[in-house]
Design a protein around this nucleic acid. Structure first.
Lengths: 253, 253
DNA sequence: GCAACTTTGTGCACGCGTTCACGAGCGGCT
DNA sequence: AGCCGCTCGTGAACGCGTGCACAAAGTTGC
């Protein structure tokens, strides 16, 4: 456990609950699998759409179909967070939506700080999808003197060196790093020093962080390379298929 | 299998290789786990950095440490693609790098089309990290008349209706969707009709696609919500921990 | 009030991915 | 040349996540 597992896409080992609460008053969720958490967010979004459409109740089959998952998986996911569906009917959209929001910690607005106002950072700063979903970007940072001092969407860009001060002041809980790769670790260190315990990293580096800090990595180049692999594999398969038809064994050209 | 599995983060079932080549001339990779492919891309990047630094050989332990993974996992990952390390020494950086590039299909440049030139789309279009890594964005699309006709980074923005024509003309193999949610399925359908078989979807919807088409989903809001969950869990744990210290059992306030 | 249908919640088995541990092979040293 | 130490490659066990299938429970219709 010396190097950070750096949970990007796939799973962290588990969510080992440390606190040893004996009886426990509330039916607090015990240990929710990481994969489940990711899906809960999807369920939540779809429930929101259903609520807007005025739908009152929804069955696990219906919701699962919309979310593109197995219905049994959905029910199990919801059972992890102690959901109370109504047998013979389904789930009440409103209460379930509220429950998931609570579980995901969306009842309190989470201030987000963004470090690195380059191409991607600028887009993230202006992206409406965050503020609208309870994640207002309240702090922007960069090192470029041309950027420090300007405002984006009404938010002033501060210098990176002020991260600890500003983040504490604005009660930032989540940091996003969209700097070039070489600057990412430095930005990360400053965020950690500011007390930020969750970081979304867009830079193509593996961040070194203390154990308590949670890092998720989004790497667009990697995503493309995965797709590229599939393209290559497909081409290969096609060619092999053709050869198999022609000759019945792969022959070196 | 009626609804699309929509492999975003975590895994697709497998990569069932259809072709039944008896003996097989080349040591073609059999069935590479999806998770492994994602890591191969990371290894590749780190190998590139090592090559720039002039490093000649690297052991699995060293490379694994840099990539933030277990060394055994790294060796197994490389064995999936039939890598030839040197026992007692390690891996030769140059050859391995070339081999991985070949495996991931990066030897041929893959044209990328981007649909939706909003906030995020604009950033993706201007993001240098793609072209520099063998994924030149060669086509841009939107429906907004104010955007159609302008150039971004030298690429003309075409109307979405021209997707099939333009994509075939420019031999696009990968499509990226950065439209608002309601427009995503339509954009996807057009890309599929254009013969694009791999799609990177940034819109928060589950795309319906034919079986042969590979979709990966990147959902920034979901990423933040996952982090938010961890924040909430941590706060909860802290409070429980405090209560446990104070009282030794959770008491309703 | 009872029976039949619907839908949730979950125990269980299967399969994939990860991890450990060890044998196999290669280079360097004497 | 032979031995020693190092590192790759991989067989096997473990653990997690997924999917099936069924019992429990609630609702509707008669």
């Amino acid at each position: 456990m010396t190097s950070a597992p750096q949970a990007g896409p796939e799973g962290t080992p588990a969510l080992g609950e440390a606190a040893a609460t004996g009886t426990g008053g509330a039916p607090a969720a015990r240990a929710v699998p990481e994969a489940t958490v990711a899906r809960l967010a999807v369920y939540l979004r779809m429930l929101g759409e259903l609520a807007e459409q005025g739908t009152d109740t929804v069955s696990s089959d219906e919701l699962a179909a919309v979310c593109g998952v197995n219905s049994a998986k959905l029910r199990k996911d919801l059972s992890y967070v102690g959901s109370h569906g109504i047998r013979g009917v389904g789930y009440e959209v409103g209460p379930l939506l509220h429950h998931l929001e609570s579980t995901l910690g969306l009842t309190h607005r989470q201030s987000v700080a963004l470090v690195g106002i380059g191409n991607l950072g600028h887009a993230l700063a202006g992206y409406g999808g965050f503020g609208g979903r309870g994640f207002p970007v309240t702090a922007l940072f960069d090192v470029d003197p041309d950027l420090v001092g300007i405002k984006i969407n009404g938010i002033l860009v501060d210098h990176v060196r002020d991260i600890p001060h500003v983040c504490r002041e604005r009660d930032v809980t989540i940091g996003m790093i969209a700097t070039p790769a070489p600057a990412a670790q430095g930005a990360c260190d400053l965020l950690v020093r500011a007390g930020v315990s969750c970081i979304l990293n867009f830079a193509p580096v593996v961040l070194q962080v203390p154990e308590q800090v949670e890092v998720r990595k989004v790497d667009l180049a990697v995503e493309l390379q995965i797709l590229s692999f599939h393209v290559a594999r497909r081409h290969l398969a096609e060619r092999e298929g053709l050869d198999a038809v022609n000759g019945h064994a792969v022959v070196r050209s």
